[in-house]
Amino acid sequence: MSAFLDALALHAFLQHALAAGLLASIACGIVGSYVVVKRIGYLAGGVAHTALGGMGIAYFLGKSPIGGALVAALLAALIIGWVSLRFRQHEDTIIGALWAVGMAIGILFISRTPGYNVDLMSYLFGNILMVSRADLLLMAGLDGAIIALVAMFRRQFLAVCFDEEFARLRGVPVEVFYLGLLLIVALTVVILIQVVGLVLVIALLTLPAAIASQYARSLAAMMFAATLLGVTFTGAGLALSYEPDLPAGATIILLAGLAYLLSALGRAIWLRRRRTFALPNPTP
């Protein structure tokens, strides 16, 4: 640990990595809380994997991969959202189809791109140690936009996540806010894929918020706790992976997964004990 702290004081790339972890955790803590309470983790996964297809096509055409990913992710979010609103029973099918087809298109086009072949692993797991100053600014901008949108429309987003039908009866344009939420998820996924990789985005979107949901009494508290947990996992993951030279992204994911497992297990045991002690003693 001391070697990591020494290196942190010396190397800008580690400072950038830590800052990226913090900024990614803010976006994922807020957006991830909506993903968890609205139970759209599978949907977010579908959007993230469809983005890979857009990246592959953009590479093949010699265009910006982030632009391709953005177009594909936003399109996927709108298609899935529309199907979900109109034909809810087909939602799983369309997500599964886009998930698989998106990845297949990405791999196919990247493999056919002439010249230097892109390392797919870098998109799946990212490289948080290669984050540039420009990336940090982009992530800070994303965080600012998300915080502003959520602050402005937090009641509407809450209503749509909590009880869609009641929100509609109170005059909330449910379709607009649901699709808006999916577009925010898509935007978060795309910007963070470049930095921390597709798998870490999904992990950071779901695991800290899922842990926080077991204890939080309000959505705001859940967002705050999920952000803190995300910062802890990224910081601890970086520190743990530094000396043994392990892949940082994978270490962060494993740490978050382990914490979720322990939390769920601990909570289940605690609830069982509480129920047992709450029962009256059997009369002899």
Partner: peptide, 15 residues
């Protein structure tokens, strides 16, 4: 769902 009684009732004010 992480929501209090008061926040649930306040949703009735939307609109």
């Amino acid at each position: 769902f992480p929501i209090s009684v008061e926040d649930t009732v306040l949703l009735g004010r939307l609109g």
